[in-house]
Write a protein that binds this DNA or RNA. Structure first.
Lengths: 222, 222
DNA sequence: ATAAGTGATAAAATCGATTATTTTTCAGGA
DNA sequence: TCCTGAAAAATAATCGATTTTATCACTTAT
């Protein structure tokens, strides 16, 4: 494992960080909203110091905006930023996937099959969205895990969180969702066949299709 | 300006963040070293709360490693990580530069010429390394500034900081330095000519040459 | 009617002290 | 001599209170 991953025993600060990160990605707070620190303190039943440390980390990570003497705000959403996120994902994730296919060993293949299977199982049980989201994130992480670039993986994860802020706002789209699920399967198949070209092409399509889905969040909301 | 930039009035936390970030990039603390928070408190004459907030942000940014209940450490340096940083820079910065040349307007051209000129002036006065570093960073930031992708710019800046941790450890190399300075001038010339292909090629060479210089930090140290 | 000032209120940032955890030290036993 | 584990010391994390800064409602002057 690499030195940039944190765990070991857990602190109030890291716990609240994980929770807030998830809540921010899930759109629990409105875009542009100012976070009232004292309210958060009550809401999450946590002290001021660990809370502020978590908020500071989230701001450095890009899930919050920090303005000196004015606390923290949720970043606004815009079509142009979504476009940027998607373009950057296409480039970074595409390269990483190609590398991952070239470099991936048997353990990676096994992880990939396992991640796909777990995701498929979660697809069946229609409730428990949270769990599906977790497995979906894990699946995409596994796709590129063997690319060999710690920094690319880091950036890709950050972009996924940003992208998901948009995607999870939109309405459920069973048709698109089904197509995306189908692509998950095909991505694994192409990856295992080491068909770099075709896999890359399909990943691009996959990202663009989910972009399509994410775009609908503007139709509904602002 | 974009919402991810912070300024306005300044707090103890943001002040100490800027200082620590610079000191970390400059190698003031040894790689792998554990930071004694109380010592930092004395050293920078700052309270515990703002200091911890700054450290948390730096950890999220990648200039520190945070381990629960064990405080903060300076990330170690390794050949393989440097390779990763350089490869990722080549990809991200290369794309961004191509875009920047395509999209840059007259204001960008003016900024570019200004940044180059300031850097050249700093080249003359051999003392004041800090100022040169600042202008050098600013020059490279300007090169890609008009690429249109907030997220790429963000990642590129992060990678520059990481790269500079290595570069600034090595010995001064006047010959390579002179070649790099020459390339700065040529990069501007090609960018203004909108010669995307040649500019991209030169930027790649530029990054690889500074990689060469950064590599020497391993010859000296570990 | 608008703009600039003023005081009250709310909120953010910071401090000093306390609590929890890790690390070190050292005595006792194999 | 080398473990082992308990006590002591050091350090990280957190809390509660204080200070500083922004915000809002209101007054006064242009």
């Amino acid at each position: 494992m690499n030195q940039y991953i944190q765990p070991s025993t857990t602190t109030a600060s890291s716990r609240i960080y994980d929770i807030l990160r998830k809540d921010l990605v899930n759109g629990r707070f409105a875009a542009g909203e100012k976070l009232a620190i004292n309210a958060l303190k009550e809401l999450y039943q946590v002290g001021l110091s660990p809370l502020r440390e978590a908020l500071n980390k989230l701001a450095a990570y890009g899930l919050l905006i920090q303005e000196n003497q004015r606390g923290f705000r949720v970043p606004t959403l815009s079509r142009s930023e979504l476009d940027d996120i998607v373009k950057t994902r296409l480039a970074l994730e595409g390269m990483a996937f190609e590398q991952a296919i070239s470099l991936g060993d048997a353990a990676w293949e096994a992880n990939l099959l396992a991640a796909e299977h777990r995701l498929k199982c979660a697809d069946m049980t229609l409730d428990n969205d949270d769990e599906w989201e977790r497995l979906h994130t894990q699946f995409h992480r596994t796709l590129v895990a063997s690319c060999g670039s710690i920094w690319s993986l880091r950036f890709i994860e950050q972009l996924h969180d940003q992208f998901d802020r948009y995607r999870r706002l939109g309405p459920k789209m069973p048709v698109i969702r089904q197509e995306l699920d189908q692509q998950h399967h095909e991505l694994v198949a192409l990856a295992l066949k080491r068909d770099v070209k075709a896999a890359r092409k399909l990943l691009d399509e996959h990202i663009l299709k989910s972009y399509e889905a994410a775009l609908t969040c503007f139709a509904q909301h602002g």
